[in-house]
């Protein structure tokens, strides 16, 4: 009789626990943490107008110099066929994308790539040691002193920007564009690449102003530009904004990005952890001790508790 009591209370517990876990996990969460302390309008920003880029790679070269990097490819090869790739010691690249046109000619467009400096960056939120951080004015910077080399940032970054030094045994680092935050922005200078650009394809300013200017440019010249400012809404907005005359997906930009920031996906889970701990310890504690008491009461019957 007692045995059936115990097993039925066990069963009741399992049902209750299952239901509450389901409720905890399915119940929608209204609170969404705003991870950023950066105001969207005032963030430092760069507008890249791809229609003005002549692929001279001045930005690539000056980036290497300004940040003291020593990549195998320093950007001095300006042939359009040459392909630059981002690496831990190469933070900015320009590649010429050939876009096939319907009229049997192809259009060559220079595309600069570097960290997009998301307003709500995935890398900052996923790094277990806080090696990535976002400064108050938006630039997302990496400090190697904390890095353990887990490469979660590389997996999490929607633009696949952080790169890793695969050839160091104990001291590999991750590398990505720092927005020249420490060596230039804090001194009131624009990023090195912006300063080096001879055609005005890059423009530095506050995000609000640049967004406005981008919209003005698109409106003034609707034939030249497509009606999409890349970075305005992608994963909650980025500090680097792109204008183009050709749809972005044809230039190798990710076109399937969600508009909600990446950190919100895990925050859904992380924010529930305290309540899960509390609920589980309460439930298990109750069951364990109450069943123990039941069993103690019938200690004389050694195998009755097992059913």
């Amino acid at each position: 009789m007692f045995a059936s009591d115990i097993s039925s209370s066990r069963r009741r517990f399992l049902k209750g626990a299952g239901a509450s876990v389901c409720a905890l996990s399915i119940f929608p969460k209204k609170l969404r943490a705003n991870h950023t302390k950066v105001s969207k309008g005032e963030a430092y920003s760069v507008l890249v107008d791809l229609t003005r880029c002549i692929a001279c790679r001045a930005c690539s070269r000056v980036c290497v110099k300004a940040n003291g990097l020593d990549p195998a490819d320093d950007g001095s090869n300006v042939s359009p066929q040459h392909c630059e790739t981002l690496a831990y010691n190469k933070w900015s690249t320009v590649n010429v994308e050939n876009v096939p046109e319907p009229m049997h000619k192809s259009l060559a467009v220079g595309v600069k790539r570097q960290c997009m400096h998301c307003l709500e960056p995935a890398c900052v939120s996923v790094c277990p040691v806080g090696a990535f951080s976002q400064t108050e004015k938006g630039p997302v910077i990496y400090r190697s002193q904390r890095c353990i080399g887990c490469r979660y940032c590389m997996i999490a970054c929607p633009f696949e920007i952080p790169k890793f030094n695969w050839h160091s045994g104990f001291t590999p680092v991750v590398g990505k564009c720092q927005f020249c935050a420490q060596n230039r922005l804090f001194k009131g200078l624009p990023p090195a690449c912006v300063e080096a650009c001879p055609t005005g394809a890059l423009k530095f300013g506050s995000r609000e102003k640049l967004l406005f200017e981008a919209k003005v440019r698109v409106k003034a010249n609707p034939k030249k530009y497509i009606k999409h400012i890349y970075g305005e809404n992608e994963i909650g907005g980025t500090s680097w904004l792109y204008l183009s005359g050709i749809p972005f997906e044809k230039l190798g930009f990710k076109s399937n990005l969600p508009t909600s920031p990446i950190p919100s996906f895990t925050w859904e889970v992380v924010s529930r952890i305290p309540i899960i701990i509390a609920a589980l310890s309460g439930l298990f504690g109750m069951v364990a001790f109450s069943l123990k008491k039941h069993i103690k009461d019938q200690d004389d019957l050694p195998k009755a508790g097992a059913s």
Binding site: V126, P128, G130, R146, I148, Y152, T266, I273
Partner: peptide, 14 residues
Amino acid sequence: HPLVMWQHTSIMFE
């Protein structure tokens, strides 16, 4: 490092 340098939004930290 993760045990000392807290970063509570990271699943890896957890």
